Computed example of a mutant assay.
Amino acid sequence: MLNRRGTLASLTGGLLAAAVAADARAQAPLADPTEVLPLWPGDPPGASGVTVVETIIERKDPRGLRDRAVIHTRRPVLTVFRPAQPNGAAVILMPGGGYERVVVDKEGFETARWLADRGYACFVLTYRLPRDGWAAGPDAPLQDAQRAMRLVRAQAGAMGFGAGRIAIIGFSAGGHLAASLTTRFEAPVYARVDAADDLSARPDVSALIYPVISMVDGPVHAGSRRQLLGPTPSAEQIVRYSPDQGVPDRAPPTILVHAADDGAVPVANTLMMFTALRAKAIPAEMHVFELGGHGFGLRSIAGLTTAAWPTLVEAFARKHGV
């Protein structure tokens, strides 16, 4: 019993220390990285007729933390975080925002810094939004996600990580995008642009954090569905854009994280995706925490068991070779 108590105390102390460090890191006034990779060599696919103006808005965080969001993305990019001591692996992060915006700080830059400290080359994806007039409509974000994976894979040799050691982490609606890439990595959603498009868009590991998954009434996050599919989606669209209903045999190992008290995206989304993955015998792991609400990222998790999620995701990725 003494050994078990000591182990539990050590684990609890470690999680609290990690959470406090994460919160402190979130509040630190750090400069943005200057290395940015455009996804497309020219205009993105289907740009004709798109008239929206890309804008960065400053949102108010109750603790005064920086909280920017990009709306009407015209130039999708990968913002690069290079680790000081590379571990040979990479992560693409897909922040949330209900498919109305891309929340770059809370779920993008902060998580990228945490991962870069642990040796991962990180790429934060600012993706296009489906209601901005792109020809591909609901597949415009997936075009960007597929292209991002192929472009990062093409950079592997030059940047010192393995082309077969690339994970994705998606949050909320970005979790839906990550789940879509997890299940539709082979879908022909755009025409070849260059040699990078000859590479696979399949992630090596996927992490879905409080993800939007189902487009079905009940578990659906209504705002994300409205932005993605409009007010009256067809039955065929609901099936196609619910990743749990299209898990392929070659889906990558996937870890899911959710809080049971999430009042925005019901935890049923994670339960449904986990069940669908297991039905196809895909290696999958799920963590449902009692408390955390929605959109916690690395913020406001000190003192909660939810604080374990980054370490759990890292351990799962390492177990599966990333």
Results as ranks from 00 to 15, higher is better:
His287Lys: 06
Arg192Glu: 15
Val124Thr: 02
Ala235His: 12
Asp139Tyr: 11
His320Asp: 04
Asp249Glu: 13
Gly13Cys: 09
His258Glu: 04
Leu277Ala: 04
Arg250Trp: 11
Gly293Lys: 11
Gly175Thr: 00
Val267His: 10
Asp249Ala: 15
Ile166His: 02
Gly133Pro: 10
Lys319Arg: 15
Val53Phe: 05
Pro45Ser: 07
Gly295Trp: 05
Leu8Lys: 14
Thr254Leu: 01
Ala17Lys: 15
Pro219Ser: 06
Ala135Leu: 14
His258Asn: 05
Tyr190His: 13
Asp139Gly: 04
Ser300Tyr: 13
Gly263Thr: 14
Leu271Ser: 10
Pro252Ser: 03
Leu229Met: 11
Val239Asp: 12
Arg128Tyr: 03
Leu15Phe: 12
Ala179Ile: 01
Ala163Thr: 10
Gly293Val: 09
Arg250Glu: 13
Ala268Glu: 15
Val103Cys: 07
Val70Ala: 02
Thr306Ile: 08
Asp32Met: 10
Leu271Pro: 08
Ala9His: 14
Ala22Asp: 15
Ala268Leu: 10
Val220Ser: 09
Ala222His: 14
Gln245Met: 15
Val313Met: 03
Ala251Asn: 04
Gly97Phe: 00
Val205Ile: 05
Ile71Ser: 00
Ala163His: 11
Gly160Gln: 07
Asp204Phe: 04
Asp61Lys: 10
Thr7Gly: 11
Gly6Arg: 14
Gln146Asn: 06
Gly49Met: 11
Val257Tyr: 03
Asp217Pro: 13
Ile282Met: 03
Arg278Ala: 09
Arg4Thr: 13
Tyr190Asn: 07
Ala302Ile: 15
Val247Asp: 04
Val193Lys: 11
Gln237Tyr: 11
Arg5Trp: 14
Trp40Asp: 06
Thr73Phe: 02
Leu229Tyr: 06
Ile213Gln: 00
Glu107Thr: 01
Asp139Ser: 08
Ser242Thr: 12
Val36Glu: 11
Leu304Thr: 13
Pro83Val: 03
Arg192Leu: 12
Lys106Cys: 02
Ala154Asp: 10
Ala28Val: 07
Leu142Ile: 00
Asn87Arg: 14
Arg4Asp: 13
Gly164Phe: 06
Leu16Asn: 14
Gln143Arg: 08
Val104Pro: 04
Arg4His: 11
Ala191Cys: 10
Trp114His: 15
Pro310Trp: 05
Arg113Phe: 06
Pro233Asp: 10
Ala47Pro: 08
Ile301Tyr: 08
Ile168Met: 05
Cys122Pro: 07
Arg147Ile: 01
Ile56Arg: 12
Gly46Ser: 08
Ala167Asn: 02
Arg128Val: 01
Pro33Leu: 04
Leu30Lys: 12
Arg299Thr: 12
Thr305Met: 12
Tyr190Thr: 04
Ser300Thr: 15
Pro219Gly: 09
Asp32Gln: 12
Arg59Gly: 08
Ala178Cys: 03
Glu236Phe: 08
Val103Ile: 07
Glu107Ser: 00
Ala315Cys: 06
Pro86Ile: 01
Leu151Thr: 08
Asp194Phe: 09
Thr275Ala: 15
Pro231Met: 03
Gly246Asp: 08
Pro253Asp: 03
Pro233Glu: 10
Pro243Leu: 02
Ala308Tyr: 09
Gly174Phe: 00
Ala26Gly: 13
Pro45Thr: 07
Ala179Met: 02
Glu186Tyr: 08
Ala84Ser: 13
Val212His: 06
Arg226Leu: 13
Gly295Leu: 05
Ala135His: 14
Thr12Lys: 12
Arg66Met: 12
Ala17Gln: 14
